[in-house]
Design a protein around this nucleic acid. Structure first.
Lengths: 207, 207
DNA sequence: GATATTTCCTAATATCATTAGGAAATATGT
DNA sequence: ACATATTTCCTAATGATATTAGGAAATATC
C-alpha cells in the first residue's frame, strides 16, 4: 500500500498548500501554479487529485466540518441542563475555530460566495452542526429552564448569528486577539434572552 | 451638459448591468464581456468608466450604503426610547434590504471575500451604520430602560449578528419568503437580553 | 521480467481581464 | 460655420491563468 500511502501524502500536501494560500491571499488571487509549486508539483499533476480549483476550495472545509460533526456528540455527552450544554457548545466551537483558523477563514469568507454552496456536503454538515442547538433549546423549553414560549429556531438564529458575527470579525481582523476575551459576558447576555423570566420565582406554570 | 449627462447614463447602465449579473451568477462567473454586452457597450469602453472588475464590484455597494447612512438619521429622528429606536432601526433596515436585494446580496455575499474590503469606503460606512446601535444601547442603559450592566458593544454584536444571519440566509435561499415573517418574535427575544431585569419592580438601584 | 497502472511532466489550448491605438461623435473657442 | 480639443467608443492585440493533451518515468501487479 505504499502507492496509495504516497498518494494520500501528496493529496494532503496539496490541501495544506491550498489552505494556506487561500487563507493568506484569498481564493481569486491564488493561482493553481502557486498551489502546485508550494506542494512541489506541476500544475498538471494537481489535476490527478482534484477536478479543479473550485473542487479544491470545496474539499478543504468539507474535511474540517465533518470532523467537527463527529466530535460534537462526544463533547456534549453527559452534560446536564440546556444552559450548560449551550455553554459547552459555544466554548467548544470557539476553541475549534481558534485551533483551525485557516479552515474557519475558508468556510466563513470564501464558501458563502460560492454559487454551489447550498448543494455542498459542507452545507448539510453545517446545518447538522446547528441542529444540535435547536434540540438544546427545545430541551430547555420543555424542562422550564428556558421560556415556555421560546421558539427554538429563532433562538438558534440569535445564537448562531452572534457567534458567526464575532468569528467573522475576528477573521477579518486577522486573528489579532483572542475570541475568548468577552465570551463570558456575551454568553450571559444571550442566555438572558432564552431563560425563563423569573428564575427566583416558580417557573413551572400550568396552562 | 449633455455630454456629462449621457456619461452618467452610461455609467448607471453599467452599474445596473453589473449589479444584476453579479447577483445572478456571482462575481467570478460574471465576465466583463457579459457586463458590457448587457450595457450595450464594448468591453474596452467600460474601462473609461471603471478601473476594472474589482473597482466595479466595490462601487456598487458604496452607493447603496452611503445612501442608507444618509437616510438613517432622519428615520430615527423624533423616536423616543431606546427600545422604540431599536425597533425602528430593525424594521427600517430589513425593509431597505427587501427593497434592494441585489445590493444586499453583493454586500453580504461578495464583499467580505474581497481582500481590500477593510480599506474600503463601504466598510467605514457600514461601521457608521452600526455605531448608531451602540448609541442606542448606551442611551437605554443610562435611562434605565435597559440593564445597568449592559455592554453596548456586545449588545450590538448580538443585534447585528442576528440581523446579518437572517439576511444572509434569506439571500442564499434566493429571497423566496419575506424577512418580516418572524421579525416581531425575534425582536422580542433579543430585547429580553437587553432590557432591565424586573421592569415591573424598581429598576433604579444604588451601588 | 513483462505488463498494467499511477504519478508526473512539458507543452498546448481556451478563457478572460486589461491595454493599444485609433475612429467617430461631441463639445469648445473663434 | 469651422477648426480644434475632448470624450466616447470600437476592433484588435496582449498577458495571465485555468484546464487539457500526450506521453515519460516511476511504481505496482502478475
Amino acid at each position: 500500500m505504499a502507492k496509495s500511502n504516497s498518494k494520500e501524502k501528496t493529496r494532503d500536501r496539496i490541501i495544506n498548500s491550498a489552505k494556506k494560500l487561500f487563507a493568506e491571499q484569498g481564493y481569486q488571487k491564488t493561482t493553481i501554479v502557486d498551489i502546485s509549486r508550494q506542494a512541489g508539483l506541476s500544475e498538471a499533476a494537481l489535476y490527478e487529485y482534484f477536478q479543479g480549483k473550485e473542487d479544491l476550495l470545496l474539499t478543504i472545509p468539507d474535511l474540517w466540518v465533518s470532523e467537527l460533526l463527529r466530535d460534537l456528540d462526544e463533547q456534549l455527552f453527559g452534560i446536564k441542563g440546556a444552559v450548560n450544554k449551550l455553554r459547552k457548545y459555544l466554548w467548544w466551537y470557539i476553541r475549534r475555530v481558534e485551533q483551525a483558523p485557516l479552515d474557519a477563514k475558508i468556510v466563513y469568507l470564501f464558501l458563502k460566495t460560492n454559487a454551489n454552496f447550498l448543494n455542498t456536503e459542507v452545507y448539510s454538515n453545517v446545518k447538522n452542526l446547528y441542529s444540535y442547538l435547536v434540540d438544546i433549546f427545545e430541551e430547555g423549553r420543555k424542562t422550564g429552564e428556558m421560556k415556555p414560549e421560546l421558539n427554538p429556531l429563532l433562538a438558534r438564529d440569535v445564537f448562531v448569528g452572534t457567534m458567526d458575527h464575532i468569528i467573522t470579525r475576528w477573521l477579518l481582523k486577522d486573528m489579532t486577539y483572542s475570541l475568548f476575551e468577552n465570551l463570558e459576558t456575551i454568553f450571559e447576555l444571550m442566555v438572558d434572552a432564552f431563560k425563563a423570566n423569573h428564575p427566583t420565582l416558580t417557573s413551572q406554570s400550568i396552562l
